[in-house]
């Protein structure tokens, strides 16, 4: 059973036990435009909430993706290196960025559920 939560910076987190899968939202990809490159954090890196964790680049510009919560990076999505356009076609599915071990469950309290996120982007 997974729960999906959202940040005001347009990331999504699918929570499964003590692991969160992180990506950017469909709204975020629509604002960025055609994604041509994604830089992911190294597996094993310990991220602190709000630090720059990944970079997503469109033809025009580079944008930072911030760690939505603290924790250790367990796995990254190797498919994005070869096919960054997945971020445009399936942002909230196949185009996940990384999986992180949740260091502090209290940090999840500040995130939004789907209804709140929809209101945030309305």
């Amino acid at each position: 059973m997974t729960t999906t939560l959202y940040t005001s910076d347009h990331e999504w987190l699918a929570i499964d036990g003590d692991v969160a899968t992180v990506g950017i939202t469909d709204y975020a990809q629509s604002q960025l435009g055609d994604v041509v490159f994604v830089e992911l954090p190294k597996v094993g890196r310990t991220l602190k909430k709000a630090e720059a964790a990944a970079v997503v680049e469109s033809v025009k510009a580079a944008s930072d993706v911030y760690a939505p919560i603290s924790g250790e990076v367990l796995e990254t999505n190797a498919e994005l290196a070869g096919e960054p356009a997945l971020v445009n076609s399936d942002a909230q599915g196949k185009a996940w960025f990384f999986k992180i071990r949740i260091a502090d469950n209290n940090e999840l309290g500040g995130l939004m559920d789907e209804a709140a996120y929809k209101a945030h982007t309305a």
Binding site: G33, D34, V36, S58, V59, K60
Partner: peptide, 12 residues
Amino acid sequence: PVQYPAGVLKEH
């Protein structure tokens, strides 16, 4: 206009 709905890649 920086882009239209087609997007920079398709326009290019």
